[in-house]
């Protein structure tokens, strides 16, 4: 489903005139299959988020090819990239990234609005998903009236609303306590099983990574596939 070849990226840092290139991704090649849960685990600052940003089209890589389905997304313009995201990707962020001015219901509804779905066709779908993530009771609450776990459920519902084949999750449980973390991870597992959605989970936490079907380990700008290294 996702094929990456020789992906490299570096950041320019330092003052103007004295910039230097800091390589972050050093020629990554890997594959993610349809319907699997893959985790990318690594130390903070190892380049995991950068990789996700490039896969999602937020950032243009220096070099490399990304193919999703049979579309070469690395060749997209900004416009095409946005359209592709709307149709194919869902996102779950560490700090939820909900719209503060919108209720839980409206936050979940937003991608459908962007996709141009008519109002009457939106309502039912949003309600179904809110029920699925167990938020029917609080659908009219604003994000600041919800707990962290509830907010993350809203953002999961928002990620699901357009039925995307792939969901990217960047530290989805990074801001949650361990009990809530388990709930969210179980929810991801069940969504993967029932809906066949491909999940790419980014985490620095081995216990989170272990819940995935497959694990990629990010180290020093390189990616290696491997099992869980329990105690190093």
């Amino acid at each position: 489903m996702i094929q990456v070849q020789e992906l490299t990226h570096s950041f320019k840092i330092g003052k103007k005139g004295k910039e230097r290139q800091v390589p972050v991704l050093k020629g990554l090649s890997f594959t993610i299959n349809e319907g699997e849960v893959v985790s990318i685990v690594g130390r903070s600052g190892s380049g995991k988020s950068t990789l996700l940003h490039i896969l999602a089209g937020f950032l243009k890589p220096d070099a490399g090819i990304i193919q999703i389905g049979n579309v070469r997304t690395s060749a997209f313009s900004e416009m095409e990239s946005a359209k592709f995201r709307l149709d194919h990707f869902g996102f779950i962020f560490q700090n939820f990234q909900l719209m503060p001015g919108l209720t839980a219901f409206e936050n979940v509804e937003l991608p459908l609005k962007l996709a141009g779905v008519a109002k009457k066709d939106r309502r039912k779908k949003v309600q179904q998903l809110l029920q699925l993530v167990g938020l029917t009771e609080v659908q009219d609450h604003y994000p600041n009236e919800l707990s962290g776990g509830q907010q993350q459920r809203v953002s999961i519902a928002r990620a699901l609303i357009t039925d995307p084949p792939i969901i990217f999750a960047d530290e989805p449980t990074g801001s949650l306590d361990s009990e809530t973390e388990q709930d969210i991870l179980l929810l991801i597992q069940s969504l993967n099983k029932t809906r066949g959605i491909t999940f790419v989970i980014i985490t620095h936490d081995d216990t989170v990574a272990e819940t995935a079907d497959r694990i990629y380990r990010m180290h020093d700008g390189e990616l290696t596939e491997g099992g869980v290294h329990h105690a190093i």
Binding site: A82, F84, R85, Q97, L110, L114, A115
Partner: peptide
């Protein structure tokens, strides 16, 4: 931030 989120979830420029 809100504009960023909109763009992230697929709003075109």
């Amino acid at each position: 931030r809100e504009i960023g989120v909109m763009k992230a979830i697929g709003a075109s420029p």
